[in-house]
Amino acid sequence: MLAPSRILRTTPAQAGGGRERWSLVEHAYDAIAEGSKSFATASELFDRDTRERVWLLYAWCRRCDDLADGQDHGGEPTEHADADKRLRAIRLLTERAFEGLPTADPAFDAFGLVARECGLTREMAEDVIMGFELDAAGWRPRTERDLARYCYHVAGAVGVMMAVVMGVPKDDSEMLDRACDMGIAFQLANIARDIGEDDAADRCYLPIEWLVEEDIEPGQHLKPHHRGELTDMAARLVTLMERHEAAAKLGTPRLPFRSRWAVLAAARIYGAIGREVRARGQAAWDHRVVIGRWDKAKHVLGAFWEALRNRPQPPETMPEWTRGDILIDVRMAGPIAKPPMDPLPDEE
């Protein structure tokens, strides 16, 4: 005989879905150590509480990215046929994490924990998820403004969340703008470095209008006879990166010393990736650009003195892409949909 519904136990809401905090932190560290060696290096410079929260947030970002693409820590993406189902799962699990309900996935439980501890919002999370949605749909930017919006979703919005994790108030627009600039700078460096890998996965983040300006046929930008034009476009990406990088540093003086040091170290490492792509010229995609261990150590040391001096120089020209303008485009696209809470269909 079934028990009356009035005496059935409900699942209690707990930050982290009821998992032990130490186990979530351990899982999150493994995720960042495997997924991003550059960011893992910089993250070690934070104080312990901030460092662990940065790892918890990263674990969610990494897991969502893998789910959206059907990957495992950035491996080969799968077909886009079930992209809608995967995005639906991401939104459902993220909503459960916000509610403090168990998700059966430590990365989402980790997000629920850091969201509760730092006051991350559903709007912040949805801005990031929209970037995964663009990738899962095989989206490509037509204009430079499209590229700006993409960089915001996949990295600028993450920068905003990272700033809040570091203790920046959610209503401090100036600091969040600078954090967004830092994320965009990182993403521009990644795009410049990964042009060859993205092409192998049938992706291209160079705006179509840039390709048209260079008189490059669709899908032909990596052909040997277009290497000169491709080098010019990569240099254009790096110039944009440097502008956002310099603007982002204007926000670092208000961070605690160790957070400032970590952010500046990450900026130096990612900036070095972009500048190495530019320096290699037409050979930039023959071998993946990697910043070696000793070079990372030099950047960490340089960031220490930069953080100690704490006098960032403003860029000659502030970035054309601003968080405010991008958010207008994002919000005009429509309200954030309430995530579906009905169960996902069983696998066939």
Rank of each mutant, 00 (worst) to 15 (best):
G274K: 04
C151G: 08
F111T: 01
P312E: 14
E26C: 08
D66L: 12
D199R: 05
D177L: 09
E306W: 09
D232E: 07
R91C: 14
V212S: 14
S38Y: 09
T252P: 09
I7E: 14
W305T: 14
L237V: 02
P343I: 08
E348T: 10
A137C: 07
M124L: 04
R280M: 01
H80D: 12
I336P: 02
A284G: 06
E174K: 12
T78W: 12
R96M: 14
D346N: 10
T41R: 15
R236P: 05
D202Y: 06
S38A: 15
F132E: 15
R53C: 05
P77R: 05
I326N: 05
A189T: 01
G159E: 04
T231S: 09
D84P: 04
V238M: 01
H226N: 15
F39Y: 14
A115D: 08
G159Y: 02
D69Y: 00
M318V: 11
G219Q: 03
F108C: 10
V160M: 03
I208S: 15
V114N: 00
D127Q: 06
R63T: 15
P102W: 11
L56R: 01
T10G: 13
W294C: 01
E213P: 07
S5F: 13
M182L: 15
A3W: 13
A15Y: 00
R116Q: 13
R149G: 06
D127K: 03
L67Y: 07
S259F: 08
F111N: 06
